[in-house]
């Protein structure tokens, strides 16, 4: 085929293009994923107890601030990495910052507490449930977000996949926080931070296979 014939073909009946399509698709996928994750947590695990207590409420709020900040941050990055050349416009290393911040807060809170409490603060009551729930609940949001990214045109597939994993993991952690009664910063740093990081790494591993176009 001659390139001129291809150009004839491509420029026949050119349609108007919606320029907001990429951010809108990603936001829609994220919102749907969040609904699925929240319904799954409330239906399968139930909402958390003790919300009459001001301490519990402030702790829930703190967890949500951390996980929602991650969601927003990851979505902004993903909006860039879903487009060609996005890797030139958003320094990827920045996604480590929220993790560094929560680990630093966790360490400070350990240092401020007597050594005898450390184990309880780190392991909590439900570490295993947290470890399993966050990655499992992240699966549907991950699939939705990857679908949205596939409709765009990422050119760095590992990073785009990692960011999709980060979005899904943070959405899942946000939903899980509605159930979780382990109110300690080191617990959140270790189990939330760890599982969200796992989702990010899994996304990075799947990106080149699932996002190719």
């Amino acid at each position: 085929m001659k390139t001129s014939s291809l150009i004839d073909m491509l420029s026949a009946n050119v349609e108007t293009v919606d320029r907001r399509q990429v951010p809108r698709t990603i936001a829609t996928a994220g919102a749907l994923g969040a609904v699925v994750a929240i319904v799954a947590v409330l239906a399968a695990l139930g909402g958390r107890a003790g919300l009459a207590d001001a301490h519990a409420i402030s702790f829930l709020a703190g967890k949500l601030v951390f996980t929602l900040a991650l969601v927003v941050f990851a979505l902004i990055f993903l909006g860039r990495y879903a487009r060609p050349g996005g890797e030139r416009r958003a320094p990827f290393g920045l996604i480590a910052l929220p993790f560094v911040a929560v680990v630093a807060l966790g360490l400070l809170s350990l240092l401020a507490a007597p050594r005898a409490h450390w184990q309880a603060m780190l392991v909590g009551d439900q570490w295993l449930e947290c470890l399993l729930s966050i990655p499992v609940i992240a699966i549907v949001p991950f699939a939705l977000v990857m679908w949205a990214v596939r409709r765009a045109a990422p050119t760095h597939l590992t990073r785009a996949g990692a960011l999709a994993g980060l979005v899904a993991g943070s959405i899942s952690a946000t939903a899980y926080a509605l159930h979780c009664v382990d109110d300690s910063v080191p617990f959140v740093a270790l189990w939330y931070g760890g599982t969200i990081a796992f989702c990010t790494v899994a996304g990075a591993a799947l990106g080149p296979r699932l996002l190719r176009w």
């Binding site: 491509l10 293009v17 919606d18 320029r19 399509q21 990429v22 879903a82 487009r83 060609p84 050349g85 996005g86 030139r88 416009r89 765009a152 045109a153 050119t155 176009w213």
Partner: peptide, 20 residues
């Protein structure tokens, strides 16, 4: 052509085309 909806008009065009 098929991915032109991923171009953000607020950004320079050449790097976008080059990345593809």
């Amino acid at each position: 052509h098929t991915r032109r909806h991923t171009y953000d008009p607020a950004e320079p065009f050449t790097p976008w085309a080059y990345a593809i």
